[in-house]
């Protein structure tokens, strides 16, 4: 677990790096956007080379485990917590857990319900998905209940499009644009946020198996980039690096659109484990 979490904090996933390189190439030389992307790319190289955090906000640690429900899950939970404590001591993870009652930092990144470890029982070899999500971008995540009269969003795909574009507009540069957007259409107040976040694990290059969602993803990505917000909200041609949309069954009375905003430094990896709990392959 140590290697997995250390890599997540220090090495930006390839699909994200490649999307940032393409974004740099679209900007005019000498522009603020070009300069910003240039600094970002240099910083990515440095963090990987020195094995140091990409961003000083090493985020909230989200862990999703899929696997057979047996005792090994308890060992996994322990090894995740041990790794987190060690990496915090080493300065690879920042002390990011505060008790809201005492306002005291727990100093080791663990606390009540922290880290969040979700377990889904499946009859397959164990797969672990890990994400370090920055607080600034998490603050920009939002949920709409449709119909919404303010942005004239009804309960259809056009309504969903309006929600996502509005969320990107509201975020401006504050979530460290260009962001990656995970969306969940449907679900309830709680599951919507979880499924929206889960979409961010998808590779930026993949194609949504649903033709409607694939088309919506493409349209919203193109249109969001026409907003001109640009990297860090300082103006430019790239406001988003990706849009990934999923859905979940909804109650007849509810129609939630949940938008999870992830910063350009989207740090997430998925690995498959051997029976001994070692990394078998990076997915």
């Amino acid at each position: 677990m140590y290697d997995l979490i250390r890599k997540t904090s220090t090495v930006l996933p390839e699909d994200v790096t490649s999307a940032i390189k393409k974004a740099l190439a679209r900007e005019d030389k000498g522009s603020v956007a070009h300069k910003t992307f240039d600094i970002i790319l240099k910083s990515i190289v440095l963090s990987s080379k020195k094995s140091l955090p990409i961003c000083q906000d090493t985020g909230t640690i989200l862990v999703m485990i899929e696997g057979r429900p047996d005792k090994s899950i308890f060992h996994l939970e322990k090894s995740i917590k041990d790794a987190i404590r060690k990496l915090t001591k080493e300065g690879i993870l920042r002390q990011n857990c505060v008790c809201p009652l005492t306002e005291k930092n727990t100093l080791d990144n663990t606390g009540l319900h922290v880290p969040q470890i979700h377990f889904e029982p499946v009859n397959r070899p164990t797969k672990i998905s890990i994400m370090l999500k920055g607080g600034g971008s998490e603050n920009m995540s939002t949920q709409y209940s449709l119909p919404n009269s303010k942005i004239q969003a009804g309960r259809d795909m056009e309504g969903v499009r309006r929600c996502i574009l509005d969320a990107v507009f509201q975020a401006q540069g504050k979530g460290c644009a260009p962001g990656i957007i995970g969306v969940c259409i449907g679900g309830d107040r709680a599951s919507g946020y979880l499924f929206a976040k889960k979409q961010i694990f998808r590779n930026l290059e993949d194609k949504n198996p649903s033709p409607v969602l694939a088309s919506l993803e493409k349209t919203v990505l193109k249109q969001a980039n026409e907003l001109g917000i640009g990297p860090m909200g300082l103006g430019g041609k790239t406001t988003l690096l990706g849009v990934k949309i999923g859905n979940a069954g909804r109650h007849p009375a509810s129609y939630f659109v949940t938008v999870s905003y992830s910063c350009w430094a989207t740090r997430r990896y998925v690995v498959e484990l051997t029976q001994k709990g070692e990394i078998k392959k990076w997915i």
């Binding site: 970002i40 240099k42 910083s43 990515i44 020195k50 961003c55 460290c176 860090m232 910063c263 430094a265």
Partner: peptide, 9 residues
């Protein structure tokens, strides 16, 4: 530049 923690460090 937000997120460019190594370059700035």
């Amino acid at each position: 530049a937000g997120g460019a923690a190594q370059y700035l460090a």
